[in-house]
């Protein structure tokens, strides 16, 4: 059984725990005993943070809307479509016609890259996330 250090994905307390995994499957949670935030404790959500990771409803492939329906597609096709659409929109309507919503749920590095994508690549400051919500 492997233990990997992590941070609880729910509220802003930032409780630290180890993810217990076996055969590439998360099987449990062990709170960090010494982390000053939670000192070996968690709330009901933290203790039960293991289950949704392997939900059968997880998205496992890119989807593209075709004839009104979202259908499975390859990464290659989906990435190209998105990049082209964003570039076309930028060309046709200017940077202010694009918007990027970053996320309070993803890592700092990913938030940084999202804002860099918006600003450096598409030259727009239309970037925000749900801090207000």
């Amino acid at each position: 059984m492997k233990r990997t250090r992590s941070v609880c994905p729910f509220c802003g307390c930032g409780c630290s725990f180890y993810i217990l995994s076996e055969n590439d499957r998360v099987v449990g949670i062990e709170p960090s005993p010494e982390n000053p935030v939670n000192k070996g404790m968690l709330c009901v959500k933290g203790w039960n943070a293991h289950e949704f990771i392997h939900s059968p409803e997880r998205l496992v492939t890119p989807l593209i809307r075709k004839q009104g329906e979202l259908v499975a597609a390859s990464w290659d096709e989906a990435l190209k479509l998105v990049a082209n659409k964003l570039m076309d929109t930028h060309k046709k309507y200017g940077p202010r016609a694009l918007g990027f919503l970053s996320s309070a749920k993803v890592s700092n590095e990913e938030n940084y890259l999202m804002m860099k994508l918006a600003r450096a690549v598409f030259k727009t400051n239309n970037v925000d996330h749900c801090a207000r919500l």
């Binding site: 309507y93 918007g99 990027f100 749900c130």
Partner: peptide, 9 residues
């Protein structure tokens, strides 16, 4: 606003 890219929201 014509195109919106939403990550994790």
């Amino acid at each position: 606003l014509k195109a919106l890219y939403i990550m994790g929201e």
